[in-house]
Design a protein around this nucleic acid. Structure first.
Lengths: 137, 137
DNA sequence: CCGCATCCTAGGCGATACTG
DNA sequence: CAGTATCGCCTAGGATGCGG
């Protein structure tokens, strides 16, 4: 099974090698969102309702038993999701800051994929857990 | 939209909070595989063919334009995939080491999910890239 | 209320050298 | 060939304080 005989895999691998520069294939950088600490959870929350920055932070705090997200990271993650077009940032123009975040159509599409993925993992959780218990024994 | 009124999200969040201890819900730890440097690529390769450790390393090197995987990391990743039951390790009992790795049925199922995910990202790559270009401008 | 700058820590990852 | 041990880098993430 050489590289030459398998262009499909090579193409996939090439996509996976890119890291998010403007013109790079987005495969790897988008998949990285699934692995990081907050991005997925942020999208799960925003899929339910549009929220302001502070409300979003509070909601994540309620949902997160261990630790709250820092403002810095929340802003960072939202910026990144906004850059990719998954989240829209709507700033009010009053005297006091008032910034709303919501999923775009693209974000909703991605959210569906996330839910499907979580569904598969849940469907196979028993198998995975029993494998772990056997391995750790 | 309180936590109480939204048990579905709370359940999802709870799963996402766990980190891979033996009895934890596997959601988060499995999603983390999608984000790391090598796990996904390893599964893409093993989905095509069973390989020995050294062959796998060589294949990953060919596919990876930038950098090769270190022996240490390859072993580490394989151990983890094996623990979760995605990969099977088949050691020969001859005088010279001869260890084959292949996907399990569970691993093949997971691989299908990965391909589906990559497919969605590719289908939406144009949108994502144009969003990035606009954001970076 | 929102975001930025600074400093800090933990963990992923890699290079190298060494065993059976 | 397969795996382990040691070392060091780099970056995601967190704590805190300031500015608009």
């Amino acid at each position: 099974m050489t590289l030459r005989s398998n262009p499909g895999l090579a193409a996939l691998a090439a996509e996976m090698e890119t890291h998010g520069a403007t013109r790079d294939a987005p495969t790897r950088s988008v998949m990285a969102l699934l692995g990081d600490r907050w991005s997925t959870l942020i999208m799960l929350v925003l899929a339910e309702t549009t929220l302001r920055h502070s409300e979003l932070k509070a909601t994540l705090e309620k949902l997160s038993s261990e630790q709250a997200i820092s403002q810095k990271i929340l802003t960072e993650k939202l910026r990144r999701l906004e850059r990719d077009g998954f989240v829209a940032r709507i700033a009010g123009n009053g005297p006091t800051p008032m910034v709303n975040y919501e999923l775009t159509d693209l974000g909703r599409g991605f959210h569906k994929q996330i839910r499907r993925l979580i569904g598969w993992i849940n469907d196979n959780a028993e198998t995975i857990l029993s494998s772990r218990m056997e391995a750790d024994a």
